[in-house]
Design a protein around this nucleic acid. Structure first.
Length: 305
DNA sequence: AAAGAATTCAACCGCAATTCA
DNA sequence: CTGAATTGCGGTTGAATTCTT
């Protein structure tokens, strides 16, 4: 047996929506609000399934929807976001006010992917030049994972040359928002579940860049465990955090924990994001452009190596 | 002008994730 | 805690439109 359909399709309209159907749907949602899609058609008097109503509202009737005429800037952003996020259309659309995931997806499949495909392959000279740049500059950017990631305020973990200190385990965690950690006691540690050994972790320091980050709904454990070498599996990675190296404080709690990484991992792995206040970004972080320019205040990158 | 090919994009589908009872 | 219901997402389809011959 297959899965039962989302709704009884008998007697329901399909295909293109009429102006009258649009009006009925829009009027109903304005009066009663969004949601309850399953029962909406019956209540509104529409011969459509709830799923169809939802799609129509979200993609076409919702106020503020932009249609067509995607600008060069928007296209550039789409290309860059797609490079980072893959086919996460809803996430990409979230970066483009008024655009829907369906439109972005269609645009990509019809216009952009074609352009990308038609682009001439880089010449030998270009390849050599690129490899020189990579060899002599800050981390080459290569997105390895495209899982949906977002957060409100993000900076980078410490680059290798500005690694965090190794800290003793007995130093305790702090709760964010409630505790005011001091320079001496606010260093987080993480314990390897599989061994009692202390695990070095990211901590405040003069140079490193892990400042005031908030990973929102990132499933960092998933990210790390999926991409990391086996030896790093099983750590108690935490996925929410807040550091502030300018005031030498950091904090964590069970619900919003500090981000902690084994030193060995931090040496070779960086996690990207973007910058809320670029004025405070140091030269190391700035070198990680282009991820940091047009996406102010929003999470962008996955793992950057 | 007509026919066929190519393109576009709104809508559908199935599945996964989330919420609810 | 569990299963059902609901919502959200990405892939795909196919009718309508545009382009080419």
């Amino acid at each position: 047996m297959g899965r039962s359909p989302c709704c009884a399709k008998v007697g329901l309209n399909r295909g293109a929506w009429t102006a009258q159907e649009d009006r009925i749907l829009a009027d109903y949602i304005r009066a009663h609000g969004e949601g309850g899609w399953r029962n909406l058609p019956k209540k509104a008097g529409l011969k459509r399934c709830g799923k169809s109503c939802r799609l129509r509202w979200l993609n076409y009737l919702r106020p503020g929807i932009k249609r067509g005429n995607i600008t060069a800037d928007e296209e550039e952003l789409i290309v860059r976001l797609h490079k980072l996020l893959g086919n996460r259309w809803s996430l990409i659309a979230g970066r483009l006010p008024g655009r829907t995931d369906n439109e972005i997806k269609n645009y990509w499949n019809t216009i952009v992917s074609k352009k990308v495909k038609d682009q001439p392959k880089p010449s030998k000279e270009t390849k050599i030049m690129k490899s020189k740049i990579i060899a002599t500059s800050q981390p080459a950017t290569q997105v390895v994972r495209t899982k949906a990631l977002k957060c409100s305020r993000v900076l980078f973990l410490a680059p290798p040359q500005a690694r965090p200190q190794v800290v003793p385990q007995q130093q305790q965690h702090h709760r964010p928002d409630t505790d005011t950690a001091t320079e001496t006691d606010a260093i987080p540690v993480v314990k390897n579940k599989n061994a009692d050994a202390e695990v070095p972790c990211l901590a405040g320091g003069e140079d490193h860049l892990a400042i005031d980050f908030d990973f929102g709904d990132i499933d960092l454990v998933d990210i790390l465990n999926s991409d990391l070498p086996d030896r790093f599996h099983g750590f108690d990675y935490c996925n929410y955090g807040s550091y502030n190296n300018t005031s030498s404080t950091c904090s964590n709690s069970s619900s919003k924990q500090a981000m902690m990484f084994p030193e060995e991992m931090v040496q070779s792995w960086n996690f990207g994001g973007c910058v809320e206040d670029q004025a405070n970004v140091g030269p190391d972080l700035q070198s990680l452009s282009p991820f940091l320019d047009s996406t102010k205040g929003e999470w962008l990158a996955g793992k950057i190596i």
